[in-house]
C-alpha cells in the first residue's frame, strides 16, 4: 500500500507536536511519550517533537542502562526517521544551561531559540506534553 493511498484514506492531516520536558529514567514520562509518538506515526499526521528543559537529556549520547536494569530506549529515537518522524526541535537555552551542544545528541535535530520554539508551538493544531 503506497503512502499516498494512506493519506487519501486518512483525511485531514493535522500538525501534532509532542513536548518532552523530563529526563529519561527518573520518571516514566519520557518513555511513555516516545511510545505515544511511535503510535501516532500510524495515523499519517504531521508529527514533530520538541525537547525542552530536562527533556534534552533524553537525547544524550552514550546512555547505558545495563547496571540499572532498565530498558535503554535512547536507541529508539534513532528509529524515528524510519517512521517518517524527522522534525526534532531542541531549545538552545535548555542545552546551554546543561553544558550540552548539538554534538552531544544521538540524533540530528534542529536547534531553536526559545522564541522560535514558542512560534513553532503556536503553529501546531495539537500540542501534547510529557
Amino acid at each position: 500500500m503506497s503512502e499516498e493511498m494512506d493519506m487519501d484514506e486518512g483525511g485531514t492531516v493535522k500538525k501534532f507536536m509532542f513536548v518532552n520536558r523530563k529526563a529519561p529514567y527518573g520518571t516514566i514520562y519520557a518513555l511513555e511519550g516516545l511510545e505515544v509518538v511511535l503510535i501516532s506515526a500510524a495515523f499519517d499526521q504531521d508529527v514533530s517533537l520538541a525537547f525542552l528543559d530536562d527533556g534534552v537529556y533524553e537525547l544524550v549520547k552514550g546512555q547505558n542502562t545495563k547496571a540499572v536494569e532498565m530498558k535503554n530506549f535512547s536507541s529508539t529515537y534513532r528509529a524515528l526517521e524510519g517512521y517518517d518522524i524527522e522534525k526534532l526541535y531542541v531549545e538552545r537555552e535548555s542545552l546551554e544551561v546543561r553544558g550540552l551542544n548539538e554534538d552531544d545528541l544521538l540524533v540530528d535535530v534542529q536547534v531553536l531559540s526559545a522564541a522560535e520554539m514558542g512560534e513553532m508551538m503556536a503553529a501546531q493544531d495539537v500540542v501534547i506534553s510529557f
Partner: peptide, 15 residues
Amino acid sequence: NEYQIAPAVRVLTKA
C-alpha cells in the same frame, strides 16, 4: 537490537 523496538508493519516493509 539496534533500535530496542519491534517495528510497525509499515516501517518493517520499508526497511
